[in-house]
């Protein structure tokens, strides 16, 4: 095993995602305190220019292959696995993102490396990882048995600025056998333009499972109208088709930063928190006093929505 902390660089449409800088920042901390080396693993085709944004790392391992031009779960698993087999890193950091969820598990099995998922914390020596589980209701500290492990990091767990360092790290070219792929990338589908862009709203009234039925939506809409805001929601509301995908806040939806985020009946799973925790003022209303959303809200109200919403509407 080497002393390397290897960070998989995630990029889409020419832009490096923030999760990469979060992991580089954290990885640097672990590398510094353990006398290790921080290495960025860049996969793509003709994207060596991105290395100049990866200055937090002492070197960039770059796999340049036409099969990696667009993200492809099978090709990326093979390429990361091949570099991991060569470098034997002490820790492989991957985002707990749509792409990272394909890569981390695949490499874990193929390279027989322990995998700790949903990391929201990593100790400075890298030996203990805190995972956020049970919808954010429980933390679990664990340590890999044996040497070398894969950790997938929840977006927003570490400051991205710590890893956002320009520079000219050395680029080491690597190659991987990507023949015989049976998964092909076809196209990217841009989100449909909705009737309204929730990322541009100063006031969001956001509804979750607690709203219980689409018949209760007008009550929340009336409150939003009176507050001069718009309606947004958590994932289950979109899955139930009560609101359009464009209204969804969170990991697979949009990240919002309004002046006021009023969360109605949203428990606060990590996937949702990712999308709204930077709002200026977060007020959460939930019947469950232990709902994780209260850990992130500035003000909390334990109350039945159907008593609270009319009460607040009545005062506006």
């Amino acid at each position: 095993m080497s002393n390397q902390i290897l960070v998989v660089v995630e990029h889409l449409k020419g832009k490096i995602e923030d999760i990469t800088f979060e992991m580089l920042g954290k990885g640097k901390e672990v590398a510094d305190s353990t006398g290790g080396e921080l290495v960025a693993l860049l996969l793509g085709s003709g994207v060596e220019g991105m290395a100049s944004q990866l200055g937090a790392a002492s070197k960039v391992i770059y796999v340049d292959d036409a099969n990696l031009a667009e993200y492809n779960p099978q090709a990326y698993c093979k390429a990361v696995g091949s570099v991991v087999a060569d470098t034997q890193p002490k820790m492989l950091l991957v985002g707990n993102t749509s792409m990272g969820m394909d890569i981390a598990g695949g490499v874990s099995v193929d390279q027989n490396m322990p995998f700790i998922a949903y990391a929201s914390g990593i100790s400075a020596d890298g030996g203990t990882v805190t995972s956020s589980l049970y919808g954010g209701k429980m933390n679990i500290d664990s340590s890999p048995s044996g040497e070398g492990c894969i950790v997938s990091v929840i977006s927003g767990s570490f400051p991205a600025d710590a890893g956002r360092v320009d520079g000219s790290p050395a680029i080491e070219l690597a190659s991987a056998d990507l023949s015989g792929l049976t998964v092909q990338f076809k196209r990217l589908i841009e989100p449909e333009g909705g009737d309204l862009d929730i990322t541009q709203q100063a006031i969001l009234i956001s509804v979750g499972r607690g709203i219980q039925s689409d018949e209760n939506l007008p009550m929340a809409e009336e409150l939003a109208a009176k507050l001069g805001g718009a309606i947004s929601c958590s994932r289950p509301i979109v899955d139930s088709k009560w609101l359009a995908k464009t209204r969804q806040v969170g990991k697979s939806g949009l990240k919002v930063k309004p002046k006021l985020y009023l969360a109605l009946g949203i428990s606060g799973a990590p996937e949702h928190i990712e999308g709204m925790k930077d709002a200026d003022l977060i007020i959460a209303v939930n019947t469950d006093p232990k709902a994780p959303i209260f850990d992130y809200a500035h003000y909390g109200v334990v109350q039945d929505l159907f008593d609270f919403i009319p009460a607040l509407s009545g005062k506006l």
Partner: peptide
């Protein structure tokens, strides 16, 4: 290849909401 759990606990984010 596995990992060992040392501790499970309810998260305390330090901040927390002021309850009304």
């Amino acid at each position: 290849a596995g990992s060992t759990v040392s501790k499970m606990y309810k998260p305390d984010t330090g901040g927390g909401a002021e309850m009304l």
